[in-house]
Design a binder for these strands. Sequence first.
DNA 1: CGCTTGACCGGAA
DNA 2: ATTCCGGCCAAGC
Length: 125
Amino acid sequence: MSVPAGQLAYYKQVWSFVRQVPTGKVVTYGQIAQSLPEPLTLDIDEQALPAARLVGSAMAASPADVPWHRVINSQGKVSNRPEANKQVQLLEAEGLSFLQGRIDLNQHQWHGSNQADQPKLQQLF
DNA sequence: CGCTTGACCGGAA
DNA sequence: ATTCCGGCCAAGC
């Protein structure tokens, strides 16, 4: 009881987060990992960086109702995978602009209800 | 049960 | 800018 398989619970959190991402916005694996409440088995304090890999694994098993294409890496580019090309097309279809093969995270990265994740950038001019 | 890979991240050379 | 390394967890063979 309590704390089932574990990873499955974490996966659900990831999917839930991705499902909240609106059209035309993107999120990074690290962002998700850091935005999630608690990685269960992970006793880390504030280091959710390695958890980003779990997010990738979770996305690998993400159901069809999850906009997986809105999840990109911290580099602002789509992950290296056969479907990456398709992901770019989907993002472009949502109105996203690719600059030199990468997206401007500062402008397109979606910030959930978690404002603690907001970048320190304030000068959009 | 043990080793290898993986839709990652950050830092250093 | 690119390339290499270490780190953490889970799934596959």
